[in-house]
């Protein structure tokens, strides 16, 4: 529980330098971060939700505010144009200002891990989300989460060394016929 609590999601604040944050929450309520044994363990199942919070500032809104801020700054400093660094700093400042008027976009994905057989079900198909949950799972439990694939499923069959070599050497099957190719 200690490790899980250490990896619960932390609030994403407007002045944070990061635009995204992820961490564990309760599977029943993605805004509940006060995790305890009862909320997480159901006999052999460990249940958690990975919540991902992200600042999404609409492009046109950012552009309009940035233009306005740029004009003000040019006028204030009596300049004709801004340098690259000044532009970047201004963008960060405008972004943070806009974030104060918005709330982060929140998404949550359930994870149910049968700790007896070592199989975890994760309810998302996005590669990016897979990467996030793998990193979070590894950080929390010091265990590697291996994605299911034809290769890992074959390996779980407990192939002997000879079968492993045969699997690695397989070539793709084709039912193509000359009749169609011609």
């Amino acid at each position: 529980m200690k490790r899980i609590r250490a990896s619960v999601i932390q609030p994403l604040l407007p002045d944070d330098d990061v635009a995204e944050r992820h961490g564990w929450t309760s599977v029943e309520d993605p805004f509940d971060t006060e995790l305890d044994h009862e909320k997480v363990f159901f006999n052999e199942y460990l249940t958690l939700a990975m919540r991902v919070d992200r600042w999404v500032v609409p492009g046109p809104l950012l552009k309009a505010h940035l233009r306005e801020a740029e004009e003000k700054l040019l006028e204030k400093k009596s300049l004709e144009r801004l340098g690259r660094k000044a532009k970047a700093d201004l963008k960060v400042m405008v972004l943070k200002k806009l974030r104060r008027q918005l709330v982060p976009v929140t998404k949550s994905y359930d994870l149910v891990w049968n700790v007896n057989d070592g199989v975890a079900f994760f309810f998302s198909h996005s590669n990016k989300t897979h990467e996030l949950v793998q990193e979070l799972f590894e950080r929390t439990f010091k265990l590697r989460l291996l994605v299911e694939s034809p290769g890992t499923a074959a390996d779980r069959r407990g192939l002997v060394a000879e079968e492993q070599r045969a699997f690695a050497a397989l070539e793709a099957t084709s039912l193509a016929t000359m009749e169609v190719a011609s």
Binding site: L146, P150, Q164, L170, T173
Partner: peptide, 14 residues
């Protein structure tokens, strides 16, 4: 075949 990342990608056509 025991490198885990390699194992995930191995022979997806299967």
């Amino acid at each position: 075949m025991k490198d885990l990342a390699e194992l995930v990608e191995l022979n997806r056509f299967v």
